[in-house]
Design a protein around this nucleic acid. Structure first.
Length: 1062
RNA sequence: GGGCCCGUAGCUUAGCCUGGUGGAGCGUUCGGCUGAUAACCGAAAGGUCCUGGGUUCAAAUCCCAGCGGGCCCA
């Protein structure tokens, strides 16, 4: 025995959302849901670990997490055991850089010398965990229901050990090697950056120079070369030309210069006006030509190189669109150069150190940083008369994503995993995955085309230590896959604080080959390695195999489109290296959150909006709902207005529940006694309609959630509650609900409304968990105390197919159309809705419309406010709308001259008949009083249509809606009565009277006519306004029958209404 | 320079896959309705559906090229 509870009148999320959260905590709702789900089918969701460089999540990160939350909540309600461990990607350069800043360290050397590695690492750990904890609190505050008490952190010993396992796997498979790799290098951080870390570009101003390389043994002949990095010239070993393109020798002021024919115009004319082409030849003719390196004197190393300083061929890397067609090769500073150099057996040199400064090998330039050496090198070339032309260009150049230092390319010895030859496998596995949207696969494959070997080593501190030990004497290598293995080699248990540097560096053991000491290679792992192994490492595999075997593969991940080249890829890579297959089944790619102009949101740009700002203004559900209604895979623009709109929609939703709960509570409606099945024989067509809509919503929103099209489900849910329930259904059932006392039609309305509102809450719960919980607790549970203690413990509703009735929905659409057209008809005649009219005519030949009018006759009469509905065929239109012929005087006058006035008068008198005849036959012959016969045709008249008096005709797609707008004294009286009722209701509301309270009423009328009218409808007024005593007087304004008294103007007459509380 | 996505009313956007009279909300103005509503209904104003070509009886929708924005890569 229960009845629905009553709700606060106003939607105030800021107040109750906190309470709801407290309820979840104290009642341990989340824990209970998890406990109950064990044993059900698994759903392995893997959280893409955010980087905790700050504790406050970006609004885009909030989108990401809320999206995940909506999906896992849905899956839980569908009866899955959902794996929901959140994670944090805690290692890497951003944390190091932040700590360096905090500790005021300027260089990598400072870390060792000023604070020492161990305290540096402690600071990194502290910062990462502190930010992660703050982030967790922020996510939890948005209602994100992940396992916040047990996140996975990539910094734990267990995680590190799991990562080691994969390195070992790669080693065993022969994929792990050490060798020279040309890599992007940050001179400030003094470490390698992988391809996907090179993400920041700046507009930099750099020299663009054309250098003349003297051909050996042919004085006065030069090979012309273009470069924007003069600092790579000390590392020059050869020149590349295209074998098949045409090159020319040009006479420029007596010097012979060789370059690509196509580029002569663009290059030579920059420097000189006059030149002469001497001869042309294919690029291959230049093969083997030797030259004198332009910096031979300045850089002694240049003189020592063997098998170098000659022309080689490449059809791949020489482009006819830029430069001179002769490419300067510095294999130590360019990957393409490196590739070709290896092919020709050329030497590879890199006279630049970790800090981006020239080494002793660079002779004159020793100690200079490369960018400052540019000027000096250009000066030297000029002195030697080898500079053909020089200018400055502004181009996009990569900078370090953390410290914004321009990067350099360096050939360095690195550890890498050879995956470039596994390209086909990667693509094969990617194709087995379900990608949402589908074109994400295209993008992913596109990225895979560029697949390169994975340089995994980093010359830093805060990361997973590379588990590789090397013998200092014989170079023997040991790759360690677990702590146990390490202990076995050491021969003793290892008791380290943790596995990070510097502690792990202290572990040494005897070389199995020569007996000398094995020391760890100092590098740490690329952070992308960390997150890439999350699919097994976050479950403790391989130390703990059970969980992984139960859960894998990952059923679902979702991240932003930047993760195509990031996490989606690093997971796949780790999956293939470790298990030879893709680790996930389904990937949902979401968009970016941009500002209202479509630009990225950044604190530094001043367009940044924190999620908390939105929460403070409109609450958590508003933010969630707004985030979730954005098309998932498109970029979303932040926009306050659209957020306000969502807030308004939630307000409507709230009010729907306030309305329902208020009346159900007053009437003591008990859903357990009067459920849908109990009232079935009293169910009305409009009830069947909303139940059809409800079940269609269940069906369609479930389909959307299954496809992870959360935004479509979200929009549907808005549409349903706002358009179908609030705007329409409640409007239709109002009168049924206002009936006092026991009433079967009221009960069936309550039963229907209750069913709709209860199921709707469940559907909305994954999207707006707060408001749904609040409404559930305050309205639903008091009525049904045996229900679970949280809405989030309910099962997702099944579709009840028997209720879905497409035809009925179509009929209702027709009814809505008729009501709208009638409203518009009244508007045209300025007749207010409250004024009852005798009849609405529906003219149609369509069966649907006829059926709609009959099924929904009562609804139609109420909503159109007419006493009757009459249906007839379209042909009857002529009764309501007539044709008129208007004389065109400008035609008739000149043509008929003297007869014109007679003709005009005749047309006016017989306007309708003439119009009809001309429409039918094209002309009409008339006989004038004077005896003449005149033929009138279309040109003489303008044919118009006009509604017959008392009727207003509106066109509908299927016919006409016609209102009879006549009303008699009684109808006018009824209209007046309704006007009075409406004013009284307004006053009751102003007085904040309880809905069920009774009143006394006095009305002062302007005249006795009005008094008579009100007396005629006295009973009606009393019932509508809950009036026990009703008195009427005439003319005695200002007499004050009570405290609450108001003058109202109704159609220009003043009525003074007094409301007295009993 | 390459790949992918987006471009529709002042703003936010649906429709595009599968061609057939471009819708909605916000905002403005006027009118109406209202004892759930911080609502709602009607009317008015507001559109080169980014531009240009093509296919077609017919293009916002399909194709091509370009422009602008975003992401990724080089």
């Amino acid at each position: 025995m229960g009845k629905p509870g009553r709700l606060e009148k106003t939607y105030m999320p800021q107040v109750f959302e906190e309470d709801v959260m407290k309820l979840w905590d104290t009642e341990e709702i989340y824990e209970e849901i998890r406990a109950k789900s064990i044993g059900k089918p698994k759903f392995y969701f893997l959280d893409g670990p955010p980087y905790p460089s700050s504790g406050v999540p970006h609004i885009g990160t909030a989108w990401n997490k809320v999206l995940k939350d909506a999906i896992i909540r849905y899956k839980r309600m569908k009866g899955f055991w959902v794996w929901d461990k959140p994670g944090y990607d805690t290692h890497g350069l951003p944390i190091e850089v932040a700590v360096e800043k905090n500790l005021r360290l300027k260089t990598k050397k400072d870390i060792v010398e000023k604070v020492g590695i161990s305290s540096f690492i402690d600071e990194c750990r502290k910062l990462a965990l502190c930010n992660a904890t703050e982030m967790s609190a922020n996510f939890k505050d948005l209602g994100v229901s992940l396992d916040w008490k047990n996140p996975y952190y990539t910094l734990t010993s267990s995680y590190i050990e799991s990562a080691w396992w994969l390195i070992k796997r790669a080693w065993e498979k022969g994929l792990l090697s050490r060798g020279l790799k040309v890599v992007w290098w940050c001179p400030r951080c003094e470490t390698v950056l992988s391809d996907y870390e090179v993400t920041e570009y700046r507009e930099l101003s750099d020299p663009s120079i054309y250098v003349m390389f003297p051909v050996k043994g042919r004085p006065g002949e030069y090979l012309l070369v273009w470069t924007t990095t003069p600092w790579t010239l000390p590392a020059n070993v050869a020149l590349m030309v295209h074998p098949d393109l045409t090159y020319v020798e040009v006479d420029v002021g007596g010097k012979k210069v060789i370059l690509l024919k196509e580029r002569v115009g663009a290059v030579i004319s920059r420097a000189v006006e006059e030149y002469r082409i001497l001869r042309e030849f294919p690029g291959r003719a230049l093969l083997g030509i030797e030259y004198i390196p332009p910096l031979l004197e300045e850089v002694p190393l240049q003189g020592k190189l063997k098998n170098s300083h000659k022309v080689v061929l490449s059809d791949k890397y020489v482009k006819p669109t830029e430069g001179t067609g002769i490419v300067h090769m510095a294999p130590g500073h360019g990957e393409e150069d490196y590739e070709v150099a290896k092919e020709y057996g050329l030497p590879i040199i890199c006279p630049v150190d970790e800090r981006g400064e020239f080494t002793v090998e660079a002779g004159k330039y020793n100690g200079l940083s490369v960018r400052e050496a540019n000027k000096i090198i250009i000066g030297d070339l000029k002195k030697k008369n080898l500079l053909f032309y020089s200018e400055t260009i502004v181009h996009r150049y990569p900078v370090c994503w953390r410290c914004k230092t321009p990067l350099v390319l360096r050939a360095t010895v690195q550890w890498y995993i050879r995956v470039s030859n596994l390209k086909e496998r990667f693509i094969e596995e990617a194709e087995k995955v379900e990608w949402i949207p589908q074109w994400a696969l295209m993008r992913f494959k596109n990225w895979l085309k560029e697949l390169r070997d994975w340089v995994v080593s980093r010359q830093r501190y805060w990361g997973i230590p590379l588990p590789i030990w090397e013998c200092s004497k014989c170079g023997n290598i040991a790759v360690i896959g677990s702590l146990k293995e390490l202990e076995r080699l050491v021969g003793a248990p290892i008791n380290l604080r943790d596995l990070h540097r510097p502690w792990v560096d202290q572990i040494t053991f005897k070389c199995s080959k020569c007996g000398n000491s094995m020391k760890r290679v100092e590098d740490v792992l690329d952070v992308w390695f960390d997150s890439g192994v999350a699919f097994y490492a976050s479950l403790g595999y391989p130390m703990n195999k059970d969980l992984f075997e139960k859960l894998e593969p990952v059923d679902f991940i979702t991240e932003g489109h930047d993760q195509i080249a990031g996490w989606f890829f690093s997971l796949l890579r780790a999956g293939i290296i470790g298990f030879n297959r893709a680790p996930y089944k389904c990937v949902l790619m979401h968009g970016y959150m941009l500002d209202e102009h479509g630009r990225e949101m950044h604190k530094s740009l001043g367009n940044y909006v924190a999620p908390t700002e939105v929460v403070e203004k409109y609450g958590r559900d508003t933010l969630r709902f707004w985030l979730l209604q954005n098309t998932i895979w498109e970029d979303a623009r932040f926009n306050w207005r659209s957020i306000e709109q969502v807030f308004r929609d939630l307000h409507i939703l709230w009010n729907v529940y306030v309305f329902a709960s208020t009346y159900m509570n007053i009437d003591g409606y008990d859903p357990l006694k009067h459920g849908l099945e109990d009232v079935e024989e009293n169910i009305q067509p409009e009830d069947r309609w909303i139940l059809s809509r409800l079940n269609r919503l269940i069906r369609e929103s479930s389909e959307c959630m299954e496809k992870y099209h959360v935004h479509e489900a979200t929009r549907m849910l808005r549409e349903f509650i706002v358009e179908d329930v609030s705007h329409w259904y409640i409007r239709l059932i109002r009168r049924r609900i206002w009936v006092e006392g026991e009433d079967p039609l009221k009960d069936s309305a309550y039963a229907t409304l209750y069913e709709v509102l209860k199921k709707y809450l469940i559907l909305l719960a994954p999207i707006a968990p707060f408001i749904t919980e609040k409404l559930y607790q305050e309205m639903i549970r008091p009525a049904e105390p045996n229900l679970p203690k949280s809405i989030h413990m309910l099962e997702w509703p099944d579709v009840e197919e028997k209720w879905i009735n497409e035809r009925l929905e179509n009929l209702m659409n027709i009814i809505r159309e008729i009501v709208e057209l009638s409203a518009s008809a009244r508007m045209r005649r300025k007749i207010k809705m409250r004024q009852p009219l005798p009849v609405v005519y529906l003219l149609t030949d369509e069966d649907d419309v006829k059926e709609a009018a009959s099924v929904f006759k009562r609804i139609l009469m109420e909503q159109v406010n007419v006493k009757n509905v009459s249906v007839m065929g379209r042909a009857e239109l002529s009764r309501f709308r007539v044709k008129r012929a208007k004389p065109r005087i400008s035609v008739i006058g000149p043509e008929l001259r003297g007869l014109a006035p007679q003709v005009i008068a005749f047309i006016n008198e017989n306007s309708r008949e003439i119009a009809e005849k001309i429409e039918r036959e094209g002309e009409v012959e008339v006989m004038l009083q004077s005896g003449e016969r005149i033929v009138i045709s279309e040109k003489h008249v303008e044919i118009t249509e006009e509604d017959v008096e008392h009727y207003v005709v509106q066109e509908a797609p299927w016919g006409y809606v016609i209102l009879d707008v006549r009303f008699d004294w009684r109808a006018r009286a009824e209209g007046l009565a309704r006007d009075i009722v409406r004013r009284v209701q307004y006053m009751r509301k102003e007085m904040d009277l309880p809905v069920e309270a009774y009143i006394k009423l006095h009305v002062v009328c302007p005249d006795s006519e009005s008094r008579k009218m009100l007396e005629e409808f006295k009973d009606y007024i009393c019932e509508e306004t809950r009036t026990r005593e009703f008195s009427i007087s005439v003319g005695d304004y200002g007499k004050r029958y009570g405290d609450y008294c108001k003058d109202w103007d109704i159609d220009g007459k003043i009525f003074e209404i007094t409301v007295l509380v009993e």
